[in-house]
Design a protein around this nucleic acid. Structure first.
Lengths: 154, 154
DNA sequence: GTACAGGTTCTAGTCGCTGGAAGGTCAAGG
DNA sequence: CCTTGACCTTCCAGCGACTAGAACCTGTAC
């Protein structure tokens, strides 16, 4: 199977597949005489697993550690349970801060529709966007400690 | 005022300040004879505004467009209202998908504690991480269209 | 031949920074 | 005068998970 078919079967772009190879998520595949990558059907499983694991919040680095351990025939169960629980905690924290941000943003958006544009004069700020004094102090440390979310947007 | 003091007053690192200058969020400052950047007090306002705007979910690019328009004396109100409402919609969508992910992850984590490690044999996957057949089909398009979240962690 | 769909490699960009190297500047203290 | 230390300068690399594009090769159909 060539890279294109593998991509079609798994829903992963060929660019991404080559990238996974580069960072060690996928092993370097055989090449046919013309230099094309050729994959066996087990790679479909592996790639699908990578996708599943990503959807549960694991990073490609973590996924690689799991796959490497399994490849060496070691048990990964404790390791994986640890990762999952860690991600659950992170997810909880993240949702909470996002919800806080949302309620602040709602107040700001509402207030902004009531402001008079002619009051907006400072060239270094916009009156709509200002800290909410009616809200408790923004916990910046919490807001800033959010784990990264990457954009796979098209 | 030098860059260090500006950073202390605003809580923004000197690295970040230089980066903001590079990408046009801050204008190129005056330099004292020794080459140090020197800032007037209005820059404190501007930087604080940048922070506030970031906390409402605006990107540095969007913040720059606001500041540029204001600098040209134009009204930014409609523009900003549009940005804010757009971010509110995004935030809603994001929280929703994160909550879905969380419930799935919870089920997976729970299930993983009941599995027998000796059943885990495939070198290309880990039995704990698998699509949840008991859940509705994962909406990958929705999950993949999440905007980026960056980590400024400590 | 020539179009077209595959494949290959490489570089660069995304976002919002952080870290580090390698050095210049300035004031205080020995 | 020299050193220490805090500050400042520049530039380069890296994070994560890719995507976009250039420039080129391969294979099949017409």
């Amino acid at each position: 199977m060539n890279i294109g078919e593998l991509g079609r079967l798994t829903g992963v772009s060929t660019k991404a597949i080559r990238y996974y190879e580069e960072i060690g998520v996928l092993k370097t595949p055989e090449r046919s005489p013309n230099g094309y990558r050729t994959y066996g059907p087990e790679t479909v499983d592996r790639l699908r697993f990578v996708k599943d694991a990503q959807l549960t919040g694991l990073t490609l680095g973590e996924i690689t550690t799991i796959l490497d351990q399994r490849g060496r025939g070691e048990s990964t169960c404790e390791h994986v349970i640890g990762l999952l629980e860690h991600h659950l905690l992170e997810l909880d924290a993240r949702i909470e801060t996002l919800e806080k941000t949302r309620s602040k943003l709602r107040v700001i958006a509402k207030r902004s529709r009531e402001l008079d544009p002619s009051d907006c004069v400072d060239p270094n700020r916009c009156q709509m966007i200002a800290p909410l004094t009616e809200f408790e102090q923004t916990d910046q440390a919490a807001l800033k400690n959010q784990p990264r979310e990457h954009a796979h947007s098209h």
